[in-house]
């Protein structure tokens, strides 16, 4: 269902695109921490950059290994860590969105297959203008290796 919606979105956006369309955002450093067997969810982390001089808005994300994906942010409220869902996220002109542990993250719900370290998951990001972007996230074992960030 989501997949079809994304495909239709990509096609219609493709048809509407003229030469003047701003460059698509770029996604990189996508990874998913391996979770205990039977986990009902995973977190997803990545960096999304916008090379365009106009702001974009991330409105939805799909995963080829999860039934649904939500945008969440971990925040501290009254001394407790809580998660707030974001319906969409602004991607400033020439700016970036960093999804990282303890902050913004993708909540990847209801995995449709086991995700062992080394597995690859395709994430599809959809923006408010209808265009989509795919990025491959690697499942990593954060128990033994610190997931490091490259530059910023």
């Amino acid at each position: 269902m989501i997949r079809r919606a994304l495909l239709v979105g990509a096609l219609s956006a493709g048809a509407a695109l003229g030469a003047a369309a701003p460059p698509l955002p770029l996604a990189s450093e996508a990874w998913i921490p391996a979770a205990p067997p039977g986990a009902r969810m995973h977190a997803g982390y990545l960096l999304v950059r916008n090379p365009a001089p106009v702001a974009q808005r991330l409105v939805a994300v799909g995963s080829d290994a999860h039934a649904r994906v939500e945008l969440h942010e971990t925040v501290v409220r009254d001394g407790a860590m809580t998660m707030e869902q974001r319906r969409s996220l602004a991607l400033p002109a020439r700016g970036e969105l960093r999804f990282a542990p303890g902050g913004l993250h993708l909540m990847l719900l209801e995995p449709t297959r086991e995700l062992a370290p080394g597995a690859r998951v395709v994430l599809r990001l959809r923006f408010a203008d209808g265009r989509t972007l795919s990025v491959t996230a690697e499942v990593r074992d954060a128990r033994t290796t610190a997931p490091h960030h490259h530059g910023s």
Binding site: P33, H42, A43, T74, M83, P101, G102, A142, R143, A146
Partner: peptide, 20 residues
């Protein structure tokens, strides 16, 4: 709690590395 996607996995993995 075990259905915690971000904070708990991050903290437990980090504790595993710290302990090691």
């Amino acid at each position: 709690f075990t259905r915690c996607p971000d904070v708990c996995p991050t903290t437990l993995a980090l504790l595993a590395r710290a302990r090691a």
